[in-house]
């Protein structure tokens, strides 16, 4: 009787452990050619097959796999299916797209392929220092979260520079992006700024052309995405303020991952606040 009880208990624990291990984190790589893997030469001569396009996605997948973090890359695009070892090839990388193009579709992307986390690298094709397109993307992600009752964390990358051209526009774009992300974090948005511009450490040898990284450049990008993803991030705490009051009323949010406390200052809306 006792042995049977212990066996049942152990089996239960084993199944519970397996269930926890099986929890899969859905990640949407979202952006342009730097997410999909397009080169200038793909337009000047015979384009490379889609099966070998991997950008940073393959290296990131391998890093997550080695760290035993179960993920599911999601998106309507498929690129990299011939790469060995295989990786999850789904993504939302759209060569040539601007941030405004992404903003007009991001709600549909998430509706079709729900994600827990988005890796956003967009703005290179904007050729402008304005981040209005990024604002529109984040607004629509917020709208999706409200409509679906889910929370989506967005890792917003400062975009990588270009070679042999002035990076003044990208400098200004990234400065504006930093300000925007910090402001929205203050209002309770689940955003993390990723310094892909300086923090990834890309140098001229890491580029295949003036805009797109080569294999070593993409590996550096993958490393920074990975290092950011594995940092502690308590979704329950970060999402709490916006679960009881709309972001437009929130003035500041501070999350302490160690004490598991969220402290925030908010205006009380006309309709009040219900806990």
């Amino acid at each position: 009787m006792n042995i049977k009880f212990i066996y049942t208990l152990l089996m239960g624990l084993f199944l519970f452990h397996t269930f926890l291990q099986a929890e899969i984190h859905r990640i949407m790589p979202l952006g342009d050619s730097i997410t999909y893997d397009d080169l200038r030469s793909d337009y000047e001569s015979t384009p490379r097959p889609t099966g070998i396009r991997k950008a940073y996605r393959a290296d990131l997948w391998y890093m997550l796999e080695e760290a035993k973090i179960s993920v599911d890359f999601v998106g309507s695009q498929v690129a990299g299916q011939d790469i060995v070892p295989p990786f999850d090839v789904n993504n939302e990388g759209h060569p040539g797209w601007t941030s405004y193009d992404i903003s007009s579709r991001v709600y549909q992307f998430l509706s079709a392929n729900p994600a827990d986390t988005i890796l956003l690298h967009i703005g290179t094709n904007d050729r402008s220092s304005s981040v209005d397109g990024i604002t529109a993307i984040l607004d629509d992600i917020d709208r999706y979260e409200r409509d679906s009752g889910t929370h989506v964390r967005v890792l917003v990358a400062m975009i990588i520079g270009r070679l042999s051209v002035s990076n003044v526009v990208i400098d200004n774009f990234n400065a504006n992006l930093t300000h925007l992300v910090q402001q929205r974090i203050q209002q309770g948005d689940m955003l993390t700024l990723v310094d892909m511009y300086q923090g990834a450490g890309l140098i001229s040898d890491d580029y295949a052309d003036i805009t797109h990284p080569n294999a070593s450049g993409y590996q550096k990008m993958a490393t920074l995405w990975f290092n950011t993803l594995i940092q502690p991030y308590n979704v329950a705490l970060h999402s709490y303020p916006q679960s009881i009051v709309s972001s437009e009323y929130i003035q500041s949010v501070v999350v302490d991952e160690n004490t598991k406390l969220v402290t925030f200052v908010t205006k009380v809306p006309d309709y009040g606040i219900t806990f």
């Binding site: 308590n234 329950a236 705490l237 709490y240 303020p241 009881i244 003035q251 004490t259 598991k260 406390l261 969220v262 402290t263 925030f264 200052v265 908010t266 205006k267 009380v268 809306p269 006309d270 009040g272 606040i273 219900t274 806990f275």
Partner: peptide
């Protein structure tokens, strides 16, 4: 201290509060 189901109703504009919540 406020509990689930409690509501905050404002009687002035603006009305600003600080909220502290611990996970769990």
């Amino acid at each position: 201290t406020v509990f689930p189901g409690d509501s905050i109703v404002k009687h002035s504009d603006p009305a600003i509060i600080n909220i502290i919540h611990k996970e769990g």
